[in-house]
């Protein structure tokens, strides 16, 4: 349905007085395809480029190079009705619920915008439909439509964010860390709601998260990003059970498990994520990698493919996968 091929996104970064500018490659040669109704999880830590990729798919920022197409039409060729259809079909929910709603406009207004502009409803139709949408995400429109965003809790605001995304009757929603800022019990409520909405509307999700548990729960397919590049992708169950990239493996060990009876795994991953301004040569994970050899410092690893489309960009993928 939505496809990106060999996407690259560079940002120019000002380093400061006298030091000039630098090129930051936020997304480096990533290809991604979203099928109707499926959930893809995009996993990675800060600086991995996962949010930048999401914003490119939304058409919010242009790619530096590579091709993006929606239903077979290149983004740049989308015009008139096709463009309007794309705008309505591809929506987003965001992590920071207080920044994603206009603080000076009431909840009702915030939800009505896409109804008026994407769907061209009259103000009256928009009002009644926004009330239905609020109800659908579990908010009583009588109480909430007239409130301002700051009067709501984070969980309630995220419900509003979902209602606004649904207002355009989308086919695909990019969800950028939608539950990361929420408390445990609220997080579960929102995830559940998102699953229900997906089942009702046959939505496709690109679920951007740093939380492997959430990724495993919500997604069939998963892509793992590190410093702008996809290092591993495949079926979520395969990838997390038998990771074929040392970074994915390290991630599965790093997240604390809520079970004190389990022995803590030995962790080999040292150091911090390098600055994306000066990514390491060769395999960009090599400075932190317990498997790293001489070849990793000099050569970018080719992608190796296993069954079920499980792919990993590591010189020693077979070894890692064998455990």
């Amino acid at each position: 349905m939505l496809q990106g091929t060999n996407l690259i996104k560079d940002f120019r970064v000002r380093l400061g007085l006298f030091r000039g500018n630098a090129n930051l490659r936020a997304v480096d040669n990533v290809s991604i395809a979203i099928q109707p109704g499926e959930t893809v999880a995009l996993v990675g830590e800060s600086g991995s480029g996962k949010s930048t990729l999401g914003r490119m798919l939304l058409g919010l920022i242009p790619q530096t190079s590579g091709a993006l197409s929606y239903r077979g039409t290149d983004f740049s060729q989308l015009q008139g009705d096709a463009q309007r259809q794309f705008r309505a079909d591809v929506q987003a929910v965001f992590q920071d619920t207080s920044a994603s709603l206009n603080p000076r406009r009431r909840i009702g207004d915030n939800v009505e915008s896409p109804l008026i502009f994407n769907r061209r409803l009259s103000a009256q139709q928009a009002r009644s439909e926004s009330a239905q949408l609020l109800e659908r995400v579990g908010l009583d429109p009588k109480t909430f439509a007239s409130r301002f965003p700051h009067q709501l809790s984070g969980g309630q605001r995220q419900r509003v964010g979902l209602a606004r995304a649904l207002a355009s009757q989308p086919k695909f929603i990019v969800a950028d860390e939608p539950v990361s800022a929420l408390d445990v019990s609220v997080r579960a409520q929102i995830l559940k709601l998102m699953q229900e909405l997906q089942a009702q509307d046959q939505l496709a999700y690109l679920f951007i998260t740093h939380d492997l548990g959430v990724a495993r729960l919500i997604a069939k397919r998963v892509m793992v990003m590190y410093l702008g590049a996809v290092v591993e992708e495949g079926n979520a169950a395969d990838v997390f059970a038998r990771p074929a990239h040392p970074y994915t493996h390290a991630l599965t060990l790093a997240a604390p498990v809520p079970d004190p009876a389990r022995a803590r795994p030995a962790r080999h991953l040292m150091g911090d994520i390098p600055s994306p301004l000066a990514p390491p040569t060769g395999c960009r994970f090599h400075p932190r990698c317990p498997y790293a050899q001489a070849i990793c410092k000099t050569e970018v690893p080719p992608v190796r493919e296993f069954e079920n489309g499980h792919r990993s960009a590591c010189h020693f993928a077979e070894q890692v996968r064998a455990g």
Binding site: L60, A88, V90, F94, S100, P114, F117, N118, R164
Partner: peptide
């Protein structure tokens, strides 16, 4: 950004 997505 959300406003852009809503077609404004």
């Amino acid at each position: 950004e959300a406003a852009r997505l809503s077609g404004m």
